[in-house]
Amino acid sequence: MSGKLYFSKYQGAGNDFILIDNRSDVFGPKDIDFVKKLCDRKFGIGADGLMLLQDIKNFDFEMLYFNADGREGTMCGNGGRCIVAFARDLGIIDSKTAFMAVDGTHDAKISASQVDLGMIDVQEVKQDGEAYILNTGSPHYVSFVDDLGEMDVYAKGYAIRNNDNYRKEGINVNFIEAEENGYLVRTFERGVEDETLACGTGATAAAMAVAVHNQLEGDMEIPIRVLGGQLYISFRKEGSYFTNVRLKGPADFVFNGEIVR
């Protein structure tokens, strides 16, 4: 395909994304190398991932997500919040929406730059040693630490993501530490293969790990601070079953641009 391709850049708590309105199939066939080039921070636009907003029956839109390595990814929570803001700015939705993603349907509410996104229920939390393993739309490893400010998250996250248990399928590695008013979380993301400023499904997984670790039950909201900002995760916990899961935080427009192919 040749010609101009228009895009928008959004970020949610420092997780940044390239968004393309693909309702007219302007993106064409999926091209791993092209997506990887666009996400490259030195030779492209630069982003943690790329999303296509597409038409789908019975929903406002479909979210198709690609990791920075060019491969189609699993659910991205901050990406989901950003595509809701993108849909609002395109005039597709007003203040509420229901859309389809790779892990199923999601609902969301948006007010100014704040997006409240419904996430999938979680029915199982496993352990790997003292770490918690769960899937919040993407697979996550959550480890409690007490030196997160000084930790080499890239080195430790890379080692866990590439060990014998997780090398083939990959896993997102989250480190969490208690603070005075909540928790700090830092994440090494598969697909980006680096630490990112935020991870929405990771923050959600970390909040659930807090509830399991502290044997909490019922309805709760847990503040999660990431390097790029503040997120809030709420849910109802009954045993190992999490329902009414919400991911709340900012989603901001950065700039528009065009690519000549």
Rank of each mutant, 00 (worst) to 15 (best):
G118E: 13
S138A: 15
A85H: 11
G137E: 09
I160T: 14
D194M: 08
V153S: 07
T136C: 13
F175C: 04
N162A: 06
N174H: 02
Y183H: 09
G79R: 07
A87I: 08
E130N: 12
A101F: 10
R161E: 15
L148P: 04
E124W: 05
A98C: 14
K156Y: 11
I171K: 11
R88Q: 15
L134R: 02
I93Q: 06
Y132T: 09
K168Q: 15
L134E: 13
D152K: 02
I120K: 12
R186E: 09
A178K: 15
Q114D: 02
K168T: 12
A112W: 00
R186D: 09
E130Y: 02
A131N: 04
G137C: 02
R88E: 10
I120P: 12
V192F: 07
F86T: 01
G137P: 01
G149L: 13
A108H: 11
D194C: 03
E130S: 13
A98N: 06
G170I: 02
V102R: 11
I160G: 08
Y141I: 04
E179L: 12
C82Y: 11
V84C: 11
D107S: 14
K168I: 12
V84E: 02
V173E: 09
I93D: 05
V185H: 01
N172Y: 09
G191Q: 05
R167M: 05
R161T: 01
L184S: 12
E193D: 13
G149M: 12
R190N: 03
N162I: 01
I110R: 07
D116Y: 06
P139R: 10
E169K: 14
K96G: 11
I171W: 00
K168H: 13
R190M: 06
G104E: 10
T136Y: 12
Y141L: 04
V192Y: 05
F144C: 14
F86E: 06
G80H: 09
Y166M: 08
G91A: 01
A98V: 15
S113P: 00
C82L: 07
G137I: 11
G80I: 06
G129T: 07
A112Q: 12
E179G: 10
M151I: 11
Q127E: 13
G129I: 07
R88W: 04
N174Y: 01
L148G: 03
G118S: 14
D146W: 01
F86L: 09
T187S: 14
V153N: 07
D146Y: 10
R161A: 15
R186L: 06
Y183D: 00
Y154D: 15
V153R: 01
Y183N: 05
S143E: 15
G129C: 13
R186G: 08
L117G: 10
I83G: 05
M151V: 13
D152F: 07
A131E: 09
D128Q: 06
I176Q: 00
R161V: 00
V153D: 13
D194S: 15
